[in-house]
Design a protein around this nucleic acid. Sequence first.
DNA 1: TAAAAATACTCCATAGGTATTTTAT
DNA 2: ATAAAATACCTATGGAGTATTTTTA
Lengths: 295, 295
Amino acid sequence: MLPTLRQLQYLKLLAEHGSFSRAAEAAHVTQPTLSAGIQELEKALGAPVVDRSRSGVILTPVGREAVRGAADILTRAEDLVQAARRAGRPLTGRFRLGVIPTVAPFLLPAALPALRRAFPELKLYLREDLTARLIAALKSGALDAALIALPYDTTGLDHAEVGEDRLLAAAPANHAFAQSEAVDPEELNRPDLILLEDGHCLRDQALGACRLEAPRGEDAYAATSLHTLVQMVGSGLGVSLIPQMAVQAGLTDSVPLVLRPIAGAGARRDIVVAWRAGSSRAAEGRLLAEALKAA
Amino acid sequence: MLPTLRQLQYLKLLAEHGSFSRAAEAAHVTQPTLSAGIQELEKALGAPVVDRSRSGVILTPVGREAVRGAADILTRAEDLVQAARRAGRPLTGRFRLGVIPTVAPFLLPAALPALRRAFPELKLYLREDLTARLIAALKSGALDAALIALPYDTTGLDHAEVGEDRLLAAAPANHAFAQSEAVDPEELNRPDLILLEDGHCLRDQALGACRLEAPRGEDAYAATSLHTLVQMVGSGLGVSLIPQMAVQAGLTDSVPLVLRPIAGAGARRDIVVAWRAGSSRAAEGRLLAEALKAA
DNA sequence: TAAAAATACTCCATAGGTATTTTAT
DNA sequence: ATAAAATACCTATGGAGTATTTTTA
């Protein structure tokens, strides 16, 4: 027999609050009601979901698995009704978009006014965070879509292309890079290569694209943002890779740098709009990607 | 307000049967009951899901979207209870595994006895089909996992590695390939290259791995199975690429062929066990991949 | 012994059934 | 004219409530 969505909500709240009474309060029902609901659920699952004890409840292994599934099912059900209520009017109302820090400041200033024009009824809630956290938020239903850069592990996601962003080699003015038209990836394999700090997808993409190893040792620097990174390169601390998008947005305008394309096709990242696979936001994600591509 | 799982079942059956009466029969309820259920659902969604007419019902755009979501939610809910009921005893009972035709005959004969030994309570239901259909079946819940080969678009799926399978260049005996230790991918770019017919993932993987174009024109052949392919190469019709796995299983034993490795690391496919992302079968999928890797 | 969960019971909202009417071909 | 869906109305299951008991740190 199938459980009820209500029972799954009870389970989710019970897991979140760690107590029948508090979960019941959160569910706006009384404690015995929630208690009975959980018992029904346990009957449906054929196994207890929590170990009851005086000091808080703890989930059984079955319960933990069930909570994961329940949360997933509930977001999908909510999605379903939201999508239906928005039907025929894509990109109207609330839309929660995550954006990575190495894209947000360079793409959004130009794109947001265009978006506002194309979708006047759209209320865009932006959240800037690292790819990993954005993806977690997508999967939990806390975000509707995210503007991220590939390559990245997109298991469980679907995506639409916004555009490709080439990576440029950056060095202090008067650096040897200035002599040639394009820089060979090999030339970037040097101890004074500066990257963003760990956790930024651009860091791994830069390394991967040029098949480099991360520099190690005392004199290896890591920057916390592209702005800092550009300043560090400009003041002669080393060389780096900068997305073309950031250059076009004027990030390097006031810094004395040499910027050169990198030989070969690998030095790029793909900017995409991603959403939870199977989400009813798929059509809107594609639409958003189209609109951003145009901007 | 959230709809009921029951209501989503009604919707799914209504879409499948195209009539309230027949859907009601399938749901083991009366027509008015199902009718009321659908009306409740429409209230929850804020829009009609079907256009009623004398000659069968037709889904509205909202309804179509809702059916997709409903089917997804229902399989996940069923998954949830199945997983709970199987808890603590992974890979016992029914497990529906899809396998692609270019893997099944070469991996399974050796692997199945080992699996039987490792998981005596496992009842493995096998289905052999092309990757695209297996993936559709995974997503609809008709399969629990599938043994497929990457690279392939795995959007919405998760997977665990079983092993890599190198592709070998195959030519009739006495062919020029016999002269060298390894064959350069370029040498396969010739009009008498024979591939599997369209739809087989191996066809695209062979082309992609060696960056080849598909041969065109009147004298371009396509084989319907690896067995045929080997026979065709053996009788002098052309050259091809054969998975090492098939060779090891003895596919080419009685055919006079030259087999040579292909230079570079690209000429390979990755055999993986895949499942629907977020499915509660994930742990079992990994376990299965481990067991197959050992075999 | 005290706080939390379970039990006992009561109630009513609603899912489901039967009988009938409305609708559209 | 007739098959299919909707409506009207009734029933009963079970979800939710209050009051109380049981359990265990």
